[in-house]
């Protein structure tokens, strides 16, 4: 280390040089603090998002680096939330990458006592077969419907997702389509 540079960092010198004679401001900053950078500075990109919890609809900024979310915080541009988030909204990243998040399909066979592995494609195939079968076995011709299948959920989902659910279920004659709005 160059001696002159080291000397210039001497707190006493900085106190007087930087107009902080009592050493209660800038001069007290450690080297570590001086070099700290917010992790959002290193983001590759920022996605503009909306909080997934209640219906106030606070805006979020989602910071991403190397394909991973590094931070989620309030978007100051929103006329609704003006950058604020509540404890739940502020914990969105923790919800997204928490330790109990599931990443694999799990299958439990009838009367089974434990989960088994199943590929996503096989699961999709099996579910499609179950729907076709249940529908064929219990088809009400007169009312063009089946009462043996029901679908629940939607209040936490996107409009586009709800639209596909209602459209598909109606096409299949599934009328028992409900969500948390009723519960």
């Amino acid at each position: 280390m160059e001696p002159l540079k080291t000397l210039s960092r001497w707190p006493l010198l900085r106190q007087f040089r930087d107009g902080d004679p009592l050493g209660l401001g800038q001069a007290a900053q450690s080297e570590r603090s001086r070099n700290l950078k917010p992790r959002i500075d290193e983001a590759d990109h920022t996605a503009r998002s909306i909080c997934p919890f209640c219906a106030v609809g606070c805006a979020q900024l989602v910071y991403v680096k190397d394909g991973e979310v590094t931070q989620i915080e309030g978007d100051p541009a929103s006329p609704i939330s003006r950058g604020r988030l509540c404890p739940k909204g502020a914990a969105s990243k923790n919800m997204h990458d928490g330790p109990l998040r599931e990443y694999k399909v799990k299958y439990r066979r009838p009367y089974g006592t434990s989960w088994e592995e199943l590929s996503l494609d096989d699961a999709m195939d099996m579910i499609a077969d179950r729907i076709i079968e249940a529908r064929a076995a219990d088809w009400d011709e007169q009312n063009r419907r089946t009462m043996s299948i029901a679908n629940l959920g939607g209040a936490t989902l996107d409009n586009e997702e709800n639209y596909l659910i209602k459209k598909l279920c109606t096409g299949l004659g599934i009328v028992q389509v409900e969500n948390q709005a009723r519960i």
Partner: peptide, 22 residues
């Protein structure tokens, strides 16, 4: 109405509900 889910209004407008269509 202070609704409690991010899209509970949306899931009523485009209903995942038995009694209405969008």
């Amino acid at each position: 109405a202070l609704r409690g889910h991010a899209s509970i209004q949306g899931s009523t407008d485009i209903p995942t509900l038995y009694n209405i269509l969008p």
